[in-house]
Amino acid sequence: MTTPIPVYFIHGLWLHSASWQPWVDLFREEGYDPSAPAWPGDPDTVAEARENPESIADHGIDDVVEHYAALIAELPAPPVLIGHSFGGMIAQKLLGQDRAAAAVAIDAAQIKGVLPLPLSALRATLPVFRNPANKRRAVSLTAEQFRFAFGNAISEEESDALYEQWTIPAPGKPLYEAAAANFNPHSPAKVATDNSGRGPLLLISGGKDHTVPETVTRATLKQYRHSDAVTDIIGFPDRGHSLTIDSGWREVADTVLTWLGRQNLGAAR
């Protein structure tokens, strides 16, 4: 009997790991062995996370990478990593370290070397950057801030519902680290983009994403120009940063499943 391919879903800032549950259920139905481990310090539930923001605070990119690397080391085989936003950056770093069979980075946060910094991205992250002390804190979004950063391509009603269901405080530290990446030769946002021996990578962009605009994802693709490994990009022109959790999530998930099949990483049935 073939052992199912393990899949780890990695969330980004402001969303609880439980927001991946529909994806976990779908991938399990498709024959994978999926799970969505939380970031270090994240409580088990959304309610607990909102009540205990101090447990989430002050975790940086390297902390998160090392956390997932330790989990991966316990698996029977290298997993497929599917990350959203900062989770997409984490997935790319782990893939570059040869810890994964493949990675899918959905609206992934900027890695070192990516230069575009659209105004909408600055506005989306302003709740963190307005106060330098937030580097060591966990910061929450208001429903209005969430609509701009995540829910601008869906109805206000759906955005508000997603906000109530899934949002948690987020550590400010990763945003500060990413913002300084191009000025720091040892930045934790640096990815081994020239690794030609790694597994395949799929970058996914949302054409209406305010937080990670399409220009950022296309600039990320260019960072991989010195690698011979498979690096693909797929765009969803009418989608925003909520594309993994809103009512259109299944279209994105099915696209990922199809791509994995093309990489000979389809689930055994």
Rank of each mutant, 00 (worst) to 15 (best):
D62G: 10
G31Y: 10
Q110C: 14
R130E: 14
E74R: 12
L260G: 02
L13D: 08
W14Q: 01
P200D: 07
V256F: 00
Y224I: 09
A105G: 02
E30K: 14
N131K: 13
E54K: 11
L115R: 15
D62V: 10
A267H: 00
R198K: 08
P22S: 03
D254Y: 11
S159M: 07
L15H: 12
R225K: 14
T211M: 08
A121V: 11
T255H: 10
P76E: 08
A18P: 11
Q97S: 12
V7L: 08
A103N: 00
G206T: 02
K173C: 00
I245W: 09
M1W: 12
R50M: 07
D42Y: 15
Y224W: 09
A105I: 01
S19C: 13
L162H: 07
K208D: 04
V114Q: 06
L75H: 05
I72S: 01
A69L: 08
V104D: 03
D98S: 12
A57C: 01
F183C: 10
L119Y: 13
F146S: 03
R262W: 09
D62W: 14
E29S: 15
N131T: 12
F86I: 14
D42T: 14
V7Q: 01
F129S: 06
G206W: 05
K135W: 11
A103Y: 00
A70P: 05
N195F: 04
G266V: 06
P37Q: 02
P79H: 02
H11T: 09
H59E: 03
K173W: 10
P34N: 02
E214Q: 14
L141E: 01
S242K: 00
L117S: 15
L257R: 14
A91M: 07
I111L: 15
M89Y: 12
L71S: 09
I56N: 03
G197W: 02
D232F: 03
T211W: 09
N152A: 12
R250S: 08
P76R: 02
L71P: 01
N182P: 06
Q21R: 12
R28K: 14
H67N: 07
N264T: 11
S55L: 14
K222E: 15
P171R: 04
L126F: 15
V212P: 00
